[in-house]
Design a protein around this nucleic acid. Structure first.
Lengths: 345, 345
DNA sequence: GTGAAAGCGCTAACAA
DNA sequence: TTGTTAGCGCTTTCAC
């Protein structure tokens, strides 16, 4: 059918094995190498990866399973994975949970059937203990993107959501804010939980009340409604929104209530999506290193595959706090109010 | 090493080929089937896809090459591809141009090396004639997402950008707008060109002047600056923005200029990104069927792979015009003005 | 360094 | 229907 190494061997007066060695970088006499090279060009030879995979028992493929491909941020993660995988001679194949009608843990058969050498499991949802256990027990190279729920037997990469939010609290505190509200995202998403912890811990660090927390969906509407409610209390000088979307909603609510941002109230967000710097006013927010998340996971995974090293690591990537126009110093009157309270106690 | 069909054959007192037949759905005596089934369970057999690929010369893999994975909309396309590919027993593997240091047209070797059975090439940029020629001449199943530059020898799927924009012109015309400005996107992006054609054609259809076109980058800033310029001319009653981003910029420019949207001026956009319905005012825009784009391409590709049919088709998917708050009737005074001009001429 | 030979796990004639 | 046999195209001992 197609040109094989046997054809090359014949044409170059060598043998199958010599051609194979040449192709794989083993020592071959220069004369032979020249001849083989010429034959390959002449006959337009292309290796058959499936034959190679069969005999080497390696697919040089890394599998990627993401909960929801269509999520905006996943595409950046994917791009990061792709980039390092490509450089290391791996291709990445995509499996979505949704279209896979089999049971959840069928990712193990991807290994057994020879589809993949390693797997990146990405999710923003919390994983079940059972699933975590399967991953931990399996002898296959798997890296989790997201929360590993404290299991030190699972390799994982995540963004330091907690620290990101603590940075925001710190910033607001330094700008005189004392009464700060928090819009907490859905608790089934692990990042939302860590962010909320960051809020609570950051507030406590300065002896501030962290009870002004509203639970919302991560939508513009969710942020809008919650902010409207918060704004009833005129003493609140800042709202920390747990993602960009709800911050847009909060921004709208402020405008609707006749409040100026940031003069009357500060709004800070989380994510730094593509529109964050263009909203009016531009959003102060925390940038998540999505691409780096993918790159790191891929690098870690390929390390596991190649060295077969059983070293487990949980990597936490730092986010970046970006100050823009939606936040600033707490309004003077409220500062006085707060000072008064402080004196009184 | 691992359990093979030979092991199953021995354990079930049948032969290799019978097991293979059972596995592939050929007729096998019920007794044998039962025995084989039991052995498979007992020995925990998993097929080796690479052996199968080697002998059948089919990878059941479709390759996807997108110009820029991290583009927000590509993730939806990808999700569409994934969804139909998965249902048809195909996996999708991802190759990005960027990380591939080889020459552009190396996608052909993906076929020759047995990586893929078919390829989806997605790009919003215009392809070069040389590349188009390579695709057209190749005997491999390839579907293009985007502009096929009129080549009827290439299977392709695209959004009907022109019609989408014509719908907008039609709508504005019916609402009394006569002087309409257009923010044209980068011409290297084929969709931008078709949209602009739709504007020109739509305007001409009603005998309107289509010369008020400004070239911009598809960014919020780009839209902002261009709109500021357009607003100098108070007789303009509507701006058609060629994507959502620049529409946000135009919205900001209007606010900054003290113009009310839609009372004083109508803004319409293109894309219907995730924030379109939440901006203030919510954007009237054209929704692109990205997921369907991916689904259609995948279906078409799998059709080519399986039937080997040489039928070439260019599919144009309809966009959906969505009216929201950023557009409305042309302001009365300007209508009068226009009427005056009409009478005078 | 090189060639001969064995075999990776599977499918697909072919004959029974 | 089934088993036997011959490969698919490659890597990898092993002896030279």
């Amino acid at each position: 059918m197609s040109v094989t190494i046997i054809d090359i061997a014949k044409d170059s007066n060598t043998s199958k094995s010599t051609v194979s060695r040449y192709l794989n970088g083993s020592k071959v006499k220069p004369v032979a190498a020249k001849a083989i090279e010429a034959s390959i060009k002449k006959l337009d030879y292309h290796q058959n990866v499936n034959a190679k995979r069969l005999v080497t028992q390696k697919s040089h493929t890394i599998g990627v399973i993401l909960d929801d491909i269509s999520n905006v941020y996943f595409s950046e993660i994917l791009s990061g994975i792709q980039s390092v995988a490509g450089n290391q001679g791996y291709v990445s194949t995509f499996y979505s949970r949704a279209s896979d009608h089999k049971r959840e843990t069928d990712f193990l058969s991807l290994f057994r059937e020879g589809h993949i050498d390693g797997l990146i499991l990405g999710t923003f949802q919390k994983r079940t203990p059972q699933e975590l256990e399967i991953i931990a027990k399996s002898e296959f190279p798997i890296v989790l993107i997201g929360d590993n729920c404290g299991s030190n037997r699972i390799n994982s990469v995540d963004v330091d959501n907690k620290q990101g939010t603590m940075d925001e609290v710190e910033y607001l505190y330094n700008h005189g804010h004392r009464k700060i509200a928090y819009l907490r995202g859905p608790l089934k998403i692990s990042g939302a939980e860590f962010r909320a912890q960051g809020f609570i811990e950051g507030m406590h660090k300065h002896g501030l009340d962290s009870s002004l927390i509203l639970d919302i969906e991560w939508t513009v509407d969710g942020g809008h409604n919650a902010a409207l409610q918060i704004l009833q209390d005129a003493s609140v000088t800042a709202i920390i929104c747990s993602n960009d979307y709800c911050a847009y909603g909060a921004l709208n609510a402020c405008r609707q209530s006749g409040l100026r941002v940031p003069e009357d109230i500060s709004i800070v967000a989380f994510d730094d999506g593509p529109l964050a710097k263009f909203s009016i006013p531009a959003l102060t927010t925390v940038k998540q290193p999505f691409k780096q998340l993918g790159e790191t996971a891929a690098r870690q995974l390929i390390g596991m595959i190649q060295e077969e090293s059983p070293v487990k690591a949980s990597i936490l990537l730092q986010s970046q706090f970006i100050v823009r126009a939606s936040s600033g110093a707490a309004p003077a009157q409220t500062n006085l109010e707060n000072k008064g309270e402080t004196y009184g106690s």
